[in-house]
Computed example of a mutant assay.
Amino acid sequence: MGVLQNKIDFVALVSAHMANVNGDPLNGNRPRTDYNGFGEMSDVCIKRKIRNRMQDLGHSIFVKSEDRCDDGFSSLKERAAAQMGKEKDKDIYAQKACEAWLDVRTFGQVFAFKGNNEVSLGIRGPVSIHQAVSVSPVEIQSMQITKSVNGDSSEKRSSDTMGSKHFVRFGLYIVKGSINVQLAEKTGFTEEDAQVIKECLRTLFVNDASSARPDGSMEIVKLFWFQHNCKDGQYSSATVHRSVHVALKEESILPESVDDYTIELEPLDGLVPEIMVGL
């Protein structure tokens, strides 16, 4: 497949049930909320999950989480040096980086390394993702827990350690994003790459289970994938994103599942999305 020729917008609905959607390290790792109580999931968090899915699907990525590092490099500088050598030309460096790593030609990357492979350049990627916000305010619940860990069998039993777990009782979040053709042309982002992003979004929480997000607690309810018939788009991204309407069936109730919401699509003349159920 060739370089992407048509603008793409997408909207994903994410449900969370008894899960810490995105913990805030500056607030005791409580799920992120705004001042009005609406739940939040940062774009950085979403991109991390997409990168993990890229890796699961067999694609080479540059920014790997520590627990998923599979190439023996302990830093981004080492990984870049192994791939780029002592390349100094910024245009060639950017081209090679985009060819080597899917996440670089997708999201872009800042390379700022000193030493033998000193280089400083920024690559703008075609895929942009908004911070996800819940449709309704979310209820945060906390649970006190204790941990007992004996690191050495010769020692006496260590005392229990007190702690807390925090989670969203239920929340329905909206993820919005777009793929820009002009930037895709610069990074070499292809139609095939767009299909990978679509699959990553559809399966966003596969292999993402943890004590904070047990299997089944996070789900892609629906993914709306809008592919325009031109480079600049038939409508603005804002118009496309607004065409997905999500509202409580009864404003007075506290939502407990996605069934408490109505999900409707406002027709846009000439632009019909592909609608998928997540895995």
Rank of each mutant, 00 (worst) to 15 (best):
L121C: 09
K165H: 10
D160C: 03
V110H: 00
Y93T: 06
G177A: 05
E185H: 12
L26Q: 10
Q95M: 10
G58I: 07
M162L: 14
L13M: 08
R30H: 08
R242Q: 15
A100Q: 10
D208P: 02
T33Q: 14
R68M: 11
L76N: 10
E274W: 01
A247G: 04
L121Y: 15
I179L: 10
V3Q: 06
A97Y: 02
S134I: 08
S243K: 07
A19P: 01
Q5Y: 02
V135N: 02
I129Q: 01
K86W: 05
T187F: 07
N116C: 02
L76A: 10
D9K: 09
K96I: 13
F107S: 06
N29H: 09
V44P: 07
T161Q: 12
I8L: 03
N116G: 04
Y35P: 00
G270Y: 08
K88T: 12
I174P: 01
S148A: 13
S154M: 10
G122M: 10
L265K: 10
G171H: 07
D91I: 08
V127P: 12
E219V: 00
V272G: 01
G28P: 00
R48Y: 07
K114L: 04
F224N: 06
A82W: 05
R30G: 01
L248H: 03
G37C: 07
A112P: 00
A112D: 14
S211P: 00
E266I: 12
V240Y: 09
T203K: 11
K90R: 14
K231W: 00
R53H: 01
L172F: 04
L201H: 05
T106A: 11
K186E: 13
E266R: 12
F224S: 06
L248I: 04
C45W: 06
D70R: 12
Q141M: 13
Q55G: 00
R105Y: 06
D260Y: 07
H245M: 14
E256S: 13
G72P: 03
A132G: 09
M84D: 05
K47R: 14
F224M: 09
V246I: 14
G216H: 03
F205T: 02
K114R: 11
P255R: 01
W225F: 09
L279G: 14
L102W: 04
Q55E: 15
T239S: 12
K77R: 13
Q109E: 14
V175L: 15
I46C: 03
N180G: 03
G122F: 05
D269Y: 10
L26Y: 12
F62R: 04
A209G: 06
V175W: 11
I197T: 04
C230A: 09
L26E: 15
E264G: 07
E139N: 12
I129W: 00
A80N: 05
N36D: 15
L223F: 07
E185F: 02
E118K: 14
S210D: 05
M41W: 06
S74F: 03
D24C: 02
I8F: 02
S42N: 05
S134L: 05
S252E: 14
T187N: 04
M84W: 06
S164Y: 11
T161P: 00
M143A: 11
L204K: 01
L57H: 00
I145E: 08
M84P: 07
D56S: 08
S257D: 08
C200R: 08
A82V: 10
K88Y: 04
